[in-house]
C-alpha cells in the first residue's frame, strides 16, 4: 500500500508539474479509522497528502460529473468502470482525464470490522495479508481477505479497465467467484416473503440519500424524489415513499451499476441496498451478457435495440 501511495504521489507530482492536469482527485488521510477523505490537489506542494490503502471505498467517478477542467483521477477497478460509464453517458470527456489506475485488492468492510470488535475501534492497520484491529483493551488480527466489503469479495474486475498510468502491475483477478448467491436466495422466496424481506431491509432508512449521493450513476440534475412540480414521492417516513425511492433508484441503475459498493459504504444505517442493484446487474448479465463500464465502444443494452433481445416475458 505504501508503494501504491508513493507511486500515486510521483505520478500526481509529474502531471501537475508538467501542467498536464489542473487538478488531481484522490484520497487523503481521514480522521477516523477506516476512513479516507476524497480530496483535490491543485498544487505540487500538496501532493504528499495523497494516500492509498484499503479505505478508499468511495467511488471517485462521482466527483467527475460535469467537470470542465483537466483532471487526473485515481481509479481502482470499479471507479474505472464508472468513469467509462460517465464517458459513455457524456458526463465527462475522455480527453479531460488522466486516469491513474490502481490495481485493487479489495476495500475493508468498516461496518463489519466495527461490528465484530469487542469495543470501539480506534485504529486499523493493514499489514500485507492481514488486518490488525485495535481499540481500548483489545487488539485482533484477521486475514485481510475475510474483512473485505461484500462487493469486493465477489469482484471480478479489480484491475482498472481504462487508464493512462498504472501504479503497479495488475493483480490477479478472482476466479470462480459466485457473484449472485445472495440474489438467488431472494429469487427463491415467494412474493410475500420477498415483500417482508425488503420491508425489513428498508425499515431503518432515514432517507438521508447517502446511497444515492455516493453513487456516480445518480447525477440527475433533479432526482425524482426531489421534484416538487409535480411531486412524485412523499417526504415522510411512510414506508410506501421509502420503498418507492429505493426501488426506483435501483431501476435507474439497471445496466449501469458496477457494484462498486459506495451506496452501502455510505449508508449511516447499515442497509444492504446492493441486493436491489445486484439483481438488476445479474439480469443485465444473464439477458444481454452485459457488464457495465468495460468498454468505451459498446452502447449499454438499455439504449440499444437488437432483434435478438430476449423477450420471453412478453406475451
Amino acid at each position: 500500500m505504501i508503494a501504491y501511495t508513493d507511486k500515486i504521489r510521483d505520478i500526481a507530482r509529474r502531471l501537475l508539474k508538467d501542467c498536464r492536469v489542473e487538478t488531481v482527485i484522490g484520497f487523503r488521510n481521514g480522521s477516523m479509522p477506516m476512513m479516507n477523505e476524497p480530496c483535490f490537489i491543485k498544487n505540487v506542494d500538496d501532493v504528499d497528502h495523497l494516500i492509498w490503502d484499503g479505505n478508499c471505498g468511495i467511488n471517485l467517478a462521482n466527483y467527475l460529473t460535469n467537470r470542465t477542467d483537466k483532471i487526473a483521477v485515481v481509479a481502482k477497478g470499479c471507479d474505472s468502470r464508472n468513469i467509462v460509464t460517465h464517458i459513455i453517458e457524456n458526463k465527462i470527456k475522455r480527453e479531460q482525464l488522466v486516469i491513474i489506475g490502481v490495481p485493487c485488492k479489495g476495500m475493508l468492510d468498516k461496518r463489519r470490522i466495527k461490528a465484530m470488535a469487542p469495543g470501539e475501534v480506534t485504529r486499523v492497520v493493514e499489514d500485507g495479508e492481514s488486518v490488525r484491529v485495535c481499540g481500548a483493551g483489545f487488539e485482533k488480527t484477521y486475514p485481510r481477505k475475510d474483512m473485505l466489503q461484500a462487493n469486493c469479495a465477489v469482484c471480478i474486475h479489480r484491475n482498472p479497465v481504462i487508464y493512462d498510468e498504472l501504479v503497479a502491475d495488475p493483480v490477479p483477478e478472482q476466479q470462480n467467484v459466485d457473484r449472485y448467491e445472495d440474489v438467488r436466495a431472494i429469487e427463491a422466496m415467494s412474493a410475500e416473503e420477498k415483500w417482508t424481506y425488503f420491508e425489513n431491509l428498508l425499515a431503518p432508512c432515514i432517507r438521508c440519500y447517502a446511497c444515492r449521493n455516493a453513487c456516480p450513476l445518480c447525477y440527475c440534475p433533479t432526482c425524482f424524489v426531489d421534484e416538487s412540480t409535480p411531486q412524485w414521492v412523499g417526504k415522510s417516513q411512510n414506508p410506501v415513499d421509502v420503498r418507492t425511492f429505493h426501488f426506483l433508484r435501483a431501476y435507474h441503475c439497471a445496466g449501469r451499476c458496477t457494484d462498486c459498493g459506495s451506496c452501502e459504504r455510505a449508508c449511516p444505517m447499515g442497509i444492504n441496498m446492493r441486493v436491489f442493484t445486484k439483481k438488476l446487474e445479474k439480469e443485465a448479465f444473464e439477458q444481454w451478457g452485459w457488464e457495465a463500464g468495460l468498454s468505451l465502444d459498446q452502447r449499454p443494452p438499455l439504449d440499444t435495440y437488437r432483434p435478438d433481445d430476449p423477450q420471453d416475458f412478453m406475451k
Binding site: E37, A266, P268
Partner: peptide, 8 residues
C-alpha cells in the same frame, strides 16, 4: 469538496 450532500 468531498461532501456528497447527503443528510447523514
Amino acid at each position: 469538496f468531498s461532501c456528497i450532500n447527503c443528510g447523514t
